[in-house]
């Protein structure tokens, strides 16, 4: 039996085969969408270069060479140098590590938090639902960047504060989605049967409701990653995110602004990087939405 046959069989012989088969079917659908594949390629490239950055033959992202400051893109510096003579290509690639780190940290905080609040609020209902949803509304009512700014200003500027500030402002939509999905399934027959079997409410939420919410949350997450990158860049641009000499993309644009007319590459290239990665995550999210739609069986 060939590998695809083994994956696509109607009669899987083990738990693992059944779930791998489902993943493979999803992949077959995903593969048919060229834009989603472009998005996946961009995101994969970002991840690979970020992981391999220390072993790539790059110049140091922080080594200054004042004799070569503001050199245009050329053979020696493919993407030119900045105002302190640092290689922009190296800074972009090392910056990808920081960007990716911020995005992953924010997602790791926001997704479980949003899922937890949303599913509990939707499933338990009553007064708890009202309280949790009003708290969510309060966070939702603040403009994202302003709240993040206020938070960072109140603590101290830096990467960790930026991550916490962005997380603080981006969980409410997840809670809302999770709650809405929970409301549609909380009275389903399979939940009723689980109650009859004596399942606790925690078990019902974790085993019955979360698997059905997670697809919309995952899609929302990939669509949100672009926004997280932009917020991180915005904080960096205002000097409240990563601190020099850390090569963060937003901070790079911020310093490049002074030379925008004469040395366009200093600000433009990190801008292109932010644009490309945001686009990649958005395309990936769109593709995933088509594949993971729970209505598609």
């Amino acid at each position: 039996m060939s590998a695809p046959d083994w994956l696509l069989t109607e009669a899987p012989a083990s738990r693992r085969q059944a779930s791998l088969g489902r993943w493979y079917r999803n992949w077959l659908v995903f593969r048919r969408n060229p834009l989603a594949m472009i998005g996946l390629a961009i995101v994969a490239l970002l991840i690979v270069t970020a992981v391999l950055a220390p072993v790539l033959p790059l110049q140091s992202p922080t080594a200054q060479a004042l004799s070569q400051r503001l050199a245009p893109p050329g053979a020696q510096h493919w993407l030119g140098t900045d105002e302190l003579g640092r290689d922009i290509l190296a800074r972009i690639i090392f910056g990808a590590r920081i960007t990716l780190g911020i995005v992953l940290m924010v997602v790791a905080i926001v997704v479980p938090l949003g899922l937890l609040i949303g599913t509990i609020s939707g499933y338990i209902g009553g007064a708890l639902d009202v309280v949790l949803m009003r708290i969510t509304d309060i966070f939702l009512a603040f403009p994202r960047l302003i709240l993040a700014l206020a938070f960072v200003a109140a603590i101290k500027p830096g990467l960790e504060s930026a991550i916490i500030a962005i997380a603080l402002t981006s969980w409410p939509p997840y809670a809302r989605i999770a709650r809405a999905e929970t409301l549609t399934v909380r009275n389903a027959d399979y939940v009723k049967v689980a109650k009859l079997q004596g399942a606790s409410w925690l078990r019902i939420i974790w085993h019955y409701i979360v698997p059905l919410c997670s697809t919309s949350v995952v899609v929302r997450m990939t669509l949100d990653m672009a926004g997280i990158i932009l917020t991180a860049a915005g904080l960096g641009f205002l000097g409240l995110g990563a601190q020099p000499p850390t090569p963060e993309w937003g901070a790079m644009i911020s310093t490049g602004r002074d030379f925008l007319l004469d040395q366009w590459w200093v600000a433009t290239i990190p801008g292109i990087a932010i644009f490309a990665v945001s686009l990649g995550f958005n395309l990936l999210g769109d593709g995933l939405r088509d594949v993971l739609d729970p209505k598609r069986t």
Binding site: A18, Y190, Y208, L212
Partner: peptide
Amino acid sequence: YGSLHPRHTIDK
């Protein structure tokens, strides 16, 4: 159609 969880295998 409604009484079986759509993401659970029969085994589960």
